[in-house]
Design a protein around this nucleic acid. Sequence first.
RNA 1: GCCCCCGUAGCUCAGUGGAUAGAGCAUCCCCCUCCUAAGGGGAGGGUCACACGUUCGAUUCGUGUCGGGGGCACCA
Length: 576
Amino acid sequence: MLVIAMQLSLETAKIALFQVTPIALKAHLTELLMLAAKAVAPDQADLSLLLERPKSAEHGDFATNLAMTLARTLKQNPRVIAENLIRALPTSPYVAKTEIAGAGFINFYLSPAAKHAVIERILAQGAAWGHCNDGQGRRVQVEFVSANPTGPLHVGHGRGAAVGDCLARLLGATGWNVTREFYYNDAGAQIDNLTLSVQCRCKGLTPEDPTWPENGYRGDYITDVARSYMAQEAVAADDRQVRGAGDPEDMAAIRAFAVAYLRREQDLDLRAFDVHFDIYSLESALYSEGKVEQTVHDLVSSGHTYEQDDALWLRTTEFGDDKDRVMKKRDGGYTYFVPDVAYHVDKWQRGFERVINEQGADHHSTITRVRAGLQALDIGIPQGWPDYVLHQMVTVMRGGEEVKISKRAGSYVTLRDLIDEVGLDATRYFLAARRADSQLIFDIDLARAHTNDNPVYYIQYAHARICSVLAEWGGDTTTLATADLSPLQLPHELNLLQRLSEFPETVQNAARELSPHLIAYYLKDLAGDLHSYYNAEKFLVDDETVKLARLALVTAARHALYNGLQLLGVSAPQKM
RNA sequence: GCCCCCGUAGCUCAGUGGAUAGAGCAUCCCCCUCCUAAGGGGAGGGUCACACGUUCGAUUCGUGUCGGGGGCACCA
């Protein structure tokens, strides 16, 4: 809802043609409407004015419900108010027609010149088309994947990687200064378990052995770790390097090696997925650098803790939790949310006024506790900081049946399995193209199908088709920026222009809503418009003016397809 | 039992206070003398889980019920 004070003059409503952008156009129409509203309802101090893009082209290019919202105070029929508004509306070179429809909607039809302007805009901006400066260079951290080094990444991590990485790309495209961070625990009980499992394999034990640890890791990859350790191989992960000691009794050496080995495996998978991190943070460092102790100390000082039953409690109920939580256990150890709070204090102190944690939905219970701990510290952290994006479970299907087992990992499907089987582009697309908060069924058969069933190829093909036409033409696309666009009048052309003009707001919206899937849907629609157009009309026609206008249009579409695919981390091939 | 997410066409999913609820797949029909048919055009298919409420108007907001999933430890 846009609330605008009614102090506008006709002068400010004038916009030079070369400046017309979808957003400026919207502002232009808003100003025209405000002027009309002032004439029709002079007593109205301020107005909430909604100008939207109708879903159907039959309802014009823009529509407003202004007459309906005025109906109550003016005590008049909305349609009558709408008539008066239209009569009072200043004329504009960008508005071809207005009409009243439905219960009192006013529909605006733009002039062709207003619609054509988007092409010049796109051709001028190129790779920057669709980007904006909402973030104004402010720093944001996106923490995602954050898998512990106890095994290969599974599909769930893949979804986190795809969604988190797309979020980072979206935020970058909308003017934020993005840091990608990966957090993991290299010292907890699960790592002890890992160490023990590797040691058993070093000694030649198998999970079938009666002495195999009850909760030991059973996957084949443990054998690989053990073999490599015994062979004294060197492994280098993105954030650490270790050589295997070859001594099956040296638990510390096994632990360090296993962690490095599995981190390297994860790094390889992530690299194959085209996902990269700026920083790796260790839970163990929070302890060794005294940050956990400091946080506990600060929480005690803040007065929100108490002792009971030989344990130290945090009064999280003061901050919206349904019961208080133990911080320090009877045995002296801390519960898991304490380092989590310490970690987020650290993020805050590093200057991230905005932090987005992309996690699996199974971690949702930590949100309240972490935020409560941060509020209890009373160090100026806003309520509701940090943001969370939680993704739901992924089910993998093949041949109509659920796939559960990976030979390598044992009990789950790995990200690597998917990349190997269906390819990088399709895997990324399928994992990012759904709303994070709905459960996802990953259909391997569909994802690997090189047919029109597969939305990835459908979109990429639209891009490749344009490239192919441009190659056939053989001209210099930079000359298209000055093409005469007036021949573009066909419904297919106007549809495509309309779709193109929606790209910037789609990007903006996707970033604001933290919803990368909106980009995927936009691209599918855009590709559909392009394919329809392609099928209906030939671009390389004899009429030079028509040809250049069409080439300018599809070149603009190519930029939008390319930039959109970039945001998803999916390639835009020139040939298929 | 409590908390979170979801419930939209046969299937997979968009939409989310407004005008006849959309797409892809599947089903049926049609289109390559033409820049890649990895394409296009058309048909059928829906009480937007259900009930009540707020509103001029609810698939969208609120409450409740039912279904699916996940979380509910002095585990991480």
